[in-house]
Amino acid sequence: MGARSGFLAAVLAAFVISGLFTGHPEAAWPLAQLDDYLLNILILAGINVVLATSLNIVNGHTGQFSLGHAGFMAVGAYGSAALTQINGKACLAALSFLGPCAQGGLFVCALLFGAALAALAGLAVGLPSLRLRGDYLAIVTLGFGEIIRVVFQNTEAVGGARGLTGIPPQTTLGWTWAVAALCIYCVSALVNSTYGRGFLAVRDDEIAAEAMGINPTRYKVTAFVVGAFFAGLAGALYAHLIGYISPEGFTFLKSVDVVVMVILGGMGSTVGVAFAAVGLTVLNELLRQAEQYRMVAFSLLLIVLMITRPQGLLGGMGRFFSRKGGNP
């Protein structure tokens, strides 16, 4: 199928590019002159790709409308910062046997720790929400996101409303896009298998899926956990990019941003959603000066899209793994 070699190539490319961009500013390579502003946007785009493709497995492939992605992102951000900032010295000391790699090693551990915590949160939200559908599920997940935020806001140990500063800025372009590649690979690999057809079956017709021996509960929880895991990774990357996190960064509006990316890209189309994530990140930056009109622009974009292409920009095409004969 060549899927794995494609994936490895993508990861390799991500690392090579990261080397080019972040290695030595004085290197002869022209791309290395990339200024910080552009670099930041590229990294943010990668983080948004992770967020959008991971939400896509819940909202797009499994058809469960979740509005709580920012909550999982927050869990990942705070969870990772717990290792690198709050307990940074102790953790570094524990990893001192790694020598010069200790800093990097801690960063990887922090990413995984944040993601694992987020996955646990996904499990905690997924299980009780399973009986809910459509609007009800959206409301519950929205509520969950807000609860998480309020909890962080009121926990002095993580800085409360002031937030956490001094998180080591270790997120690089390479790391971000490697995670993005991993996320795209995982979601596509899962969906493009007999096992993964279960997600789509649950979305298309839950009663028929059950009648075919597919357990919708298991698929929904799996989708939630996988989605939350990658949202947590994205949150951890974000925390170590900006170096500062506060509960205000993970509001309901952030969840909406991600939902917009998924809808724009076409629910269930991995490639489409990834492109939409990049496009909207750039658009976001262009509209930075006109912050108050941003939501208006997004809404207009959505309305126009719903009228002209309800299946999303790339909806119904552009799957990561194409097979001969093609899928609809």
């Binding site: 007999t194 057809r197 279960g198 789509l200 298309d204």
Partner: peptide, 22 residues
């Protein structure tokens, strides 16, 4: 009640889920 977004083949493939080892 078919899985309306899936191809003919994938509708059948999805139903093999039950006996899947991997």
């Amino acid at each position: 009640r078919l899985f309306s977004s899936l191809s003919v083949l994938d509708n059948v493939v999805a139903a093999f889920n039950l006996h899947l080892k991997s």
